[in-house]
């Protein structure tokens, strides 16, 4: 049903068509839950929150795995091998890993498409800027979009570097320990990686808290707990990930 445009002078601009189902058509069939989620800004944010949390869970596991590098090549490479055999004998070799990969790709794609569509919408909603500029919101909030783009580019490089070895200078399949040390022995490898990890930290700091709000977990009393948790997660992940290139650069790991 369309809510009538009752104010005559707004006729000059195209009237918003209204998707509301108030009153008379209230008993009509409503669209499916998936449709409702995908069509609404709140729904898209929910998709971003859920996919973001999936990726965040993965990051925590990934970071913990990375730290195995401090226990030497044996343990690190062994862990890498286990990732391929996990789920056996129920699952075939590497199946579990592929399931995780497919899930992650789906999460990244949904997160990215939602972010792109929402950003386009946001920019359209505020076409004119204020003449009087002033600093707004926190650094993490303002860097969400750029941070997201940096992370997307980084993921591509990261996979080509350490998963497929396409852009790696001396990649050897099955020897992740050596591959990692080689990557962090180049200046650009460190710069790219550390930049991306910092962007990830900021992204997680606002993203985690933001996801909690979107999923309706946040309220006035829980706000401090959520903010502290977001800061702690961001700090632990950043430190955990950065520790590897720093260890390689300082020779702690070689």
């Amino acid at each position: 049903m369309k809510i009538s445009q009752t104010i005559s002078w707004t006729d000059r601009r195209p009237a918003p068509t209204v998707v509301s189902m108030a009153l008379a058509t209230r008993t009509d069939r409503r669209p499916s839950m998936t449709r409702t989620l995908w069509d609404s800004t709140v729904g898209k944010k929910t998709i971003m929150a859920v996919t973001g949390l999936i990726m965040l869970g993965y990051l925590v596991a990934h970071m913990v795995g990375n730290l195995k590098i401090f226990f030497g090549p044996g343990e690190f490479d062994g862990y890498a091998h286990w990732l391929r055999t996990m789920g056996e004998p129920i699952l075939h070799y590497e199946w579990a890993l592929w399931i995780v990969r497919v899930g992650l790709v789906a999460a990244v794609v949904l997160h990215g498409i939602s972010a792109y569509q929402l950003s386009r919408r946001d920019i359209r909603a505020r076409p004119a800027k204020y003449v009087h500029k002033r600093r707004r919101a926190s650094y993490a909030t303002r860097t969400m979009r750029w941070g997201g783009i940096i992370l997307a580019l980084f993921i591509v490089w990261h996979i080509l570097d350490l998963t497929t070895g396409t852009v790696h200078t001396s990649f050897e399949a099955g020897h992740p320990y050596q591959n990692v040390i080689d990557t962090f022995s180049t200046w650009y490898g460190n710069v790219i990686y550390i930049t991306a990890v910092l962007a990830m930290g900021l992204h997680v700091q606002h993203g985690f808290w933001s996801a909690a709000q979107t999923l309706g977990v946040g309220n006035a009393t829980r706000d401090r707990v959520l903010k502290t948790l977001a800061n702690a997660l961001a700090a632990v992940l950043t430190l955990g990930f950065v520790s590897v290139p720093v260890a390689v650069m300082t020779g702690v790991v070689s």
């Binding site: 998707v19 709140v42 919408r121 303002r142």
Partner: peptide
Amino acid sequence: ETRVLDMVAQMDEEGFGGCTLTGE
């Protein structure tokens, strides 16, 4: 239920942007 669904749908329809929780 209908209230919140319809009001959010109308809000989107009017061309308002989405929330990024900047707190402004």
